[in-house]
Nucleic acid binder design. Structure first.
Length: 216
DNA sequence: GCCACCGGTGGC
DNA sequence: GCCACCGGTGGC
């Protein structure tokens, strides 16, 4: 989590929101959102998912500085200690930049999968009528079938998922061992891709760990 | 029966 | 190797 220049990162507590029409609970498995200051490289918590989505959408054109956080922390500056220090209690993931904010009334939900699976996370959109859309194909079909959203296009949706900082969180497809005669050993091919992503991406999510933590 | 979660795979 | 998509299924 040491600061590299020109990156930004953000965080939210495990968030439960409610569909207005159905009061159905929708869970986001993200514990916190943080953005990195472009100037001092310190990571700053972002108070809400909505604010984080707003910052993330514009980050390429509108860099984040500690002063930006004065909207919710009036006295914050680059002289203050970083909000985030790396410890063993959290998992982190690098988010993708320039993801559009979900349309008004819609939710973009990120669900983190368990460690050792074939995929780190799933993104889905919840429509104002609480329908869950899992892919761009489903979004396009939905928009065609629902002309009440004439202004929405597929370009306003993104199913990109963050990348975990923890190496080997996701089982590598080509490193899978073939299970024979009850041998369930899993081999994972180590790579250095995390370092590469750190230089390319600008946003991180803090993912809550629920492995025996009393906080869970 | 529904749905959240997960795995598999085709395409790039 | 990564991503997008979607089918299967276990838990409710």
């Amino acid at each position: 989590m040491e600061g590299k220049p020109n990156r930004s990162n953000a965080a939210i507590g495990n968030k439960t929101s409610f569909s207005k029409k159905t009061s159905k609970r929708v869970w986001d498995s993200i514990a916190a959102y943080t953005v990195q200051c472009e100037r001092c490289s310190k990571w700053r918590f972002i108070p809400t998912k909505e604010k984080y989505e707003e910052i993330r959408e514009r980050l390429a054109e509108q860099p984040f500085f500690c002063e930006t956080a004065r909207e919710w922390r009036s006295d914050l500056s680059c002289n203050d200690e970083p909000d985030v220090i790396q410890d063993g209690n959290w998992r982190w993931a690098i988010d993708k930049p320039s993801i559009p904010q979900p349309p008004p009334g819609w939710q973009r939900i990120l669900r983190i999968r368990a460690k050792g699976g074939t995929k780190f996370a799933d993104v889905y959109y919840v429509t104002p009528s609480s329908k869950r859309l899992r892919s761009m194909t489903e979004v396009q079909s939905y928009l065609i079938e629902h002309p009440e959203y004439p202004c929405l296009t597929a370009s306003q949706f993104s199913f990109q998922i963050p990348s975990p900082l923890e190496e080997n969180y996701v089982r590598k497809r080509h490193a899978r061992s073939i299970t024979l005669h009850g041998d369930t050993t899993m081999r994972v091919n180590p790579t250095s891709w995390v370092g590469t992503l750190l230089h390319m991406l600008r946003i991180q999510l803090k993912v809550e760990v629920c492995e025996g933590s009393s906080a869970c």
